[in-house]
Design a protein around this nucleic acid. Structure first.
Length: 222
DNA sequence: ACCCAGGGTCATA
DNA sequence: TATGACCATGGG
């Protein structure tokens, strides 16, 4: 397995700056691990505020549980999650995931699976790709998996630590190798990156993350 | 009227 | 392996 070479010192320095600037994120505060998993699927290429509406609808219908989702009619489920966009494909993805989840005995069983096996199994669920699988592993199962998303790529590219075009798993393995397995750190790191991306570079959206530099390439220094 | 958002799948070359 | 089309709502 190839991995992108990354500096532990540089990665920790970026983390410290993000943390100093933004403080603890208390991220992905789903009431249950299952809610975190549903959120991970619904937030695919979608603003989180819309995911919150969809989850609120599921709660109002008392359908925020795997059996309730599997049993729901497709058009009903699609209607409840409508605000999160792509509601037809996401309804199908939620059903596939919940069926998989129930067949394997739910969280109490799955939490005993080793991370490598759990990740491979998640990736076999249609609609669960690498980032979604890693969101679930990190935020629902507290496994030391570093999530790579578009913001992470932009940030590391802007900082000259990567090109942005690296293979997903090579970049993930590079970060994990440099930092060592540390689920609480990875949890907070990813949250800080995403919050930085949406909080700061609104004036220059394509430049998410650039302002970690003393002198921002776009001219917006912080 | 644009652009973007905490992606993934499928067809095509 | 690597693009492009498609999925669709809501906020800036």
């Amino acid at each position: 397995m190839s991995r992108v070479p990354l500096s532990r010192r540089a990665l920790r320095a970026v983390y410290r700056r993000l943390h100093r600037a933004q403080g603890p994120q208390q991220w992905w505060p789903g009431e249950t691990p299952f809610e975190v998993m549903v959120g991970a699927i619904l937030t695919q290429n979608t603003a989180w505020v819309n995911v919150e509406r969809a989850i609120a609808n599921l709660k109002a219908r008392e359908r925020l549980d795997p059996a309730g989702i599997v049993a729901a009619r497709h058009d009903h489920l699609a209607g409840w999650i409508r605000p999160s966009g792509y509601f037809n494909v996401k309804a199908q993805r939620l059903k596939a995931f919940c069926g998989w989840y129930l067949e394997r005995g739910g969280h109490e069983r799955l939490k005993r699976w080793p991370t490598t096996r759990l990740r491979a199994a998640l990736l076999d669920v249609p609609g669960v790709g690498r980032e979604t699988a890693d969101d679930i592993l990190l935020y629902a199962f507290h496994r030391p998996v570093f999530v790579i998303d578009a913001y992470t790529r932009r940030l590391f590219a802007r900082l000259g630590m990567a090109t942005g075009g690296e293979d997903y798993d090579a970049l993930r393995a590079g970060v994990e190798d440099a930092l060592g397995p540390d689920a609480p750190l990875f949890n907070e790191y990813h949250a800080l990156i995403v919050n930085h991306g949406k909080d700061i570079c609104k004036v220059a959206p394509r430049c998410a993350g650039c302002c970690l530099r003393e002198r921002c390439p776009t001219g917006r220094s912080r």
